[in-house]
Amino acid sequence: MRRAAILLAALAIAAPALAQTPIRFARGASSAVVEGSVLRGERATYSIAARAGQTMTLRIASPEENAVFQLYAPGARMAPEGVAGKPLPGAAEGEDARSWQGRLPANGTYLIVIGPTRGNAAYRLEVAVR
């Protein structure tokens, strides 16, 4: 019984870190802006549905220029050990992307992962899909 309680507590703590906030455009719009902040060592995650052949543009700005993102193809998911999925070229982990534009390879839900390069980071992410 005690092991089950510990496991449930661990899952409750991990669940917010694994959750993704969906990005939805206002009716008739093809872009949106999301703002937030992320603590050192943590990630903010967003999902956005798009179709193959559409062009996505991402731009992130932060007051201290310390927020970056990664973009993952449909099927990617957050796991306790990190992201499980295929990053898109130019926006993979370690590339410290601050802007990205490209034609999307597949239909589905794309994963955007935001993190700081140092310290905590406030950010403003602009997303457009056309």
Rank of each mutant, 00 (worst) to 15 (best):
A61K: 07
V33R: 15
G28D: 02
L58F: 06
R130Q: 14
E95V: 00
F69R: 09
A17L: 08
A84K: 12
G85M: 06
A4Y: 14
L111Q: 05
Y110V: 12
V33F: 13
I6N: 06
V68I: 11
R98I: 04
A97H: 01
G36C: 14
A128C: 10
A9W: 04
E65T: 00
R130G: 15
L71R: 04
T55K: 10
M1R: 14
Q54N: 09
A4T: 15
A19K: 03
A4S: 13
T55C: 02
R77G: 08
E95C: 01
R98L: 00
G108P: 08
A91D: 01
V38N: 05
A50T: 09
M56K: 00
G94C: 05
E95M: 01
G94A: 01
S99V: 00
P22L: 03
V33G: 10
V83R: 09
W100N: 04
R130D: 14
G108T: 09
R51N: 10
L7E: 12
G85S: 09
Y123I: 10
R2H: 13
T21H: 03
Y123W: 08
A121K: 05
A92M: 06
R124K: 15
A32F: 10
G75L: 11
I6P: 01
R59V: 11
G82E: 01
R98F: 00
